[in-house]
Amino acid sequence: MVPIGHYLVLAGTLFAIGAAGVVSRRNAIVALMSIEIMLNAAILAFLAFARLHGDLRGHAMAFFVMAVAAAEAAVGLAIVVAVFRRRATVNLDELRELKG
């Protein structure tokens, strides 16, 4: 059996990769995908702990998170589309009208 530590390290790494992606990638769609990676890292941690505790709540939580992530992605994509329609770009660097 794989020790819990391994799962946690994997989850932490995934989380860091996702976070780094959101912070560094200029394309809004990629940033959105990176956020999904962060959420998946959390799901992985939930599942690992569920297995460790022998407890079903972690599994249930995974479903909750998937549903929420779907809703979030839908709204996020809609916002990106709205931005693209008005500004003809999804490059985060170019969205700097609001500042100061």
């Binding site: 976070a19 200029r26 700097r96 100061g100």
Partner: peptide, 21 residues
């Protein structure tokens, strides 16, 4: 303060994210 704010809040959303991180 104006220039400090302008530097901090330069409109780049990823700067904000990196501050959170």
């Amino acid at each position: 303060t104006g220039s400090a704010v302008a530097w901090l809040q330069n409109g780049d959303v990823q700067r904000y994210l990196s501050f959170i991180a």
